[in-house]
């Protein structure tokens, strides 16, 4: 709890501008039209006596000013299985509301994703980023206000196919309600003078899941730091830990290290 308060104070106390380039969640804003980004990330799950790693490669595309599309694959060696491809995922997000002010905006977007996974689910937690095959749809709200970016996501996930069969065979439910609340802040530079300045951002994200019809839920807190080089290359380092949980999960704590390269005007219309 102390850690959270420290992080939130850090967010509230810095006199800089906001950032909404969250590490765990997507903001309602999209990438610019005609741009492409490639994201590579590694997650390290602390499972007590052992640990697992999961890698993800994600390609993101700004299809138009309102629509962005992602394609992702996860691979790794989890739960003592040999290293291999685990899942593929397609994601689309449509920004349907935007009210821009000077140094501020409020935006809303709807998203949907579909995932296919080779892995055999072992936990009550439902996760379309590697563990399960299924679909998820939801809404994102993002407010950018000079010094603070706040974003919230609410979504519904339902798993299908073998994932669902395994989950039901274990006596678990095959659907979940996911929600998040994220804060972001720019720490450096204090004053922008060039695109070559390195940006330093901090984020604090609350990530939760509840299984409808049961008392099963979890709530995680994920503080993270981000460096952006030359306004195009991002590095993220995040630590995610459990605040409350009443379900079985792959890990109560995990680390994530990631990089993302943005190519503006990557393709013609």
């Amino acid at each position: 709890m102390k850690k959270i308060i420290f992080f939130l104070l850090l967010l509230a106390g810095s006199f800089a501008k906001a950032q909404e380039l969250f590490v765990y969640t997507e903001p309602a804003s999209n990438m610019p039209a005609k741009s492409v980004a490639i994201k590579q990330s590694a997650k390290l799950f602390d499972q007590g006596t052992t640990s697992s790693t999961r890698h993800a490669t994600e390609i993101m595309l700004g299809a138009s000013k309102n629509l962005m599309i992602h394609g992702a694959a996860t691979y790794g060696a989890l739960n003592n299985t040999p290293f291999g491809l685990e899942s593929i995922r397609a994601y689309g997000k449509y920004r349907f509301f935007s009210a821009d002010g000077m140094y501020s905006h409020f935006r809303m977007a709807a998203f949907a994703e579909i995932a296919h996974s080779n892995t055999k689910p072992m936990y009550q937690e439902i996760n379309l980023q590697g563990d399960h095959a299924g679909m998820q749809a939801g809404i994102v709200f993002t407010q950018l206000l000079h010094k603070l970016a706040v974003s919230s996501t609410v979504s519904y996930a339902a798993i299908n196919g073998n994932s669902k069969a395994h989950q039901l065979a274990m006596g678990n439910r095959a659907e979940a309600l996911n929600y998040s609340l994220s804060f972001g802040h720019l720490i450096l530079p204090k004053k922008y003078t060039s695109y070559d300045q390195t940006n330093f951002n901090i984020y604090a994200e609350f990530l939760g899941q509840a299984i409808p019809g049961t008392r099963k839920s979890y709530l995680d807190f994920a503080p993270s730091i981000q460096l952006i080089f030359k306004s195009k290359l991002k590095f993220n380092l995040a630590y995610r830990f459990n605040l409350q949980s009443s379900m079985t999960r792959m890990a109560q704590t995990s680390w994530m290290l990631g990089g993302e390269w943005l190519f503006l005007n990557a393709f013609k219309k």
Binding site: G101, Y103, H105, L186, Y192, N199, S231
Partner: peptide, 9 residues
């Protein structure tokens, strides 16, 4: 309008 970050700019 609608931005505060260098990447956006």
């Amino acid at each position: 309008s609608g931005l505060t970050c260098a990447m956006c700019s």
